[in-house]
């Protein structure tokens, strides 16, 4: 198994009340399969991604990881706004034991930021930061890539570049995608996991499951191109 949740329970205290997101969650995500996580808002998709990434710790249970895992792709919270793009890229490269110069050069080339790579991230626009974050994610060879709703950064050209890069990367890496965009789930994933119930619903028939999910959620299958 690449990633495995064993009897994971996770809860948060909000406004003085404990809200349980997962109760004894058991989930196995094997190697070689791209997984889509879907569910209504508050069902725990991002929490699960955080647990898988190790950014959050379960109250009870294990998360076992046997893979070189990315940070949630496009997430820029781990980058210092006071440091330049180059310095941030070098930092990420060191964490993943990759050549800092190579990673910085790839990120600069892929993002097309040019001189802005030498500037602190805080002076770059939100779009530039998103381009930087995506480019850096592509600079390191992960075995499993975590994606949280970011398949649409930058202008049309850059989005096309991102899609092509991700398609190319899918040949070598598995992806775990959290998205409300069901078309992306159908296009990119081999397995779908629906969160929100007591235990997740897992299915390899992605199209059929997504169609049922959308019907249950909205009362129609409109908007999902099957």
């Amino acid at each position: 198994m690449s990633l495995e949740c064993i009897d994971v329970t996770k809860s948060y205290v909000t406004m003085g009340r404990r809200h349980t997101v997962f109760q004894n969650l058991n989930l196995s995500l094997p190697k070689g399969i791209n997984v889509g996580l879907i569910g209504p808002n508050g069902s725990g998709k991002s929490t699960l991604l955080r647990l898988l990434a190790g950014a959050d710790v379960p109250d009870e249970g294990y998360v076992v990881r046997n893979t070189r895992l990315s940070w949630p792709l496009g997430f820029s919270g781990g980058f210092s706004p006071h440091l330049s793009g180059i310095a941030n890229a070098r930092f990420a490269a060191r964490i993943y034991n990759r050549d800092p110069n190579h990673v910085a050069a790839f990120t600069e080339e892929f993002s097309g930021l040019g001189e802005f790579m030498k500037w602190p991230l805080k002076v770059c626009s939100t779009g530039m930061r998103a381009r930087f974050a995506f480019a850096l994610s592509m600079a390191i060879d992960f075995e499993t890539i975590l994606i949280d709703e970011i398949l649409g950064v930058g202008d049309a050209d850059f989005r096309a570049k991102c899609t092509a890069a991700l398609d190319e990367r899918r040949a070598r890496s598995d992806i775990i995608l959290v998205s409300h965009n069901l078309k992306d789930i159908i296009r990119l994933c081999d397995r779908v996991v629906i969160l929100g119930g007591r235990q997740p619903i897992i299915s390899d028939d992605v199209v059929k499951t997504v169609k049922r999910y959308n019907l249950a959620l909205t009362g129609s299958a409109d908007g999902v191109d099957f």
């Binding site: 990881r65 919270g77 980058f79």
Partner: peptide, 10 residues
């Protein structure tokens, strides 16, 4: 805390 998103980081 944002750095904790890197799986290796605790």
């Amino acid at each position: 805390s944002g750095l904790l998103m890197f799986p290796q980081m605790t």
